[in-house]
């Protein structure tokens, strides 16, 4: 298993184990509770992405249940409620430049998905 680590972070984070990597389906998300926060974790091929599960448009925690895809060069997830898309790498909303959601670092270690708890 390759170890994939994404997203820079300032301080040494605490890594929280979420689930085995092979529970994840490529192109689909799950939601994890990381330090009391709801984090949407997505797998695209062997790469991992972690965003807040909060959809600012509908004010609900649902992003992990969106359809994953691409727009141009951006990998993105579309909120299942009103279908706005968010960049998986940056959390920026691709349909409204004023909106973004937090992103988190994620990696695979010993076959386990880990998310950085800030």
């Amino acid at each position: 298993m390759t170890i994939t680590e994404t997203h820079a972070h300032a301080l040494a984070p605490t890594w929280v184990e979420v689930c085995p990597f092979d529970w994840l389906i490529s192109g689909r998300g799950v939601c994890a509770l990381v330090g009391g926060r709801q984090v949407a974790v997505f797998r695209v091929d062997d790469e991992l992405f972690a965003l807040s599960n909060f959809d600012p448009f509908s004010q609900t925690f649902v992003l992990s249940r969106g359809v994953v895809g691409s727009r141009g060069d951006h990998l993105k997830v579309a909120s299942p409620i009103f279908k706005q898309s968010f960049d998986l790498r940056t959390g920026a909303c691709l349909d409204d430049a004023t909106v973004s959601v937090p992103t988190y670092a994620a990696r695979v270690a010993d076959g386990q998905v880990q998310v950085a708890c800030p």
Binding site: S58, R65, P80, I81
Partner: peptide, 21 residues
């Protein structure tokens, strides 16, 4: 298989998503 990743949330969870999630 791969079909799972294609479905809209309604089809993915075989239920109708409402405004509160």
């Amino acid at each position: 298989g791969e079909q799972a990743s294609l479905q809209d949330t309604n089809d993915h969870f075989l239920a109708n998503l409402q405004r509160d999630g």
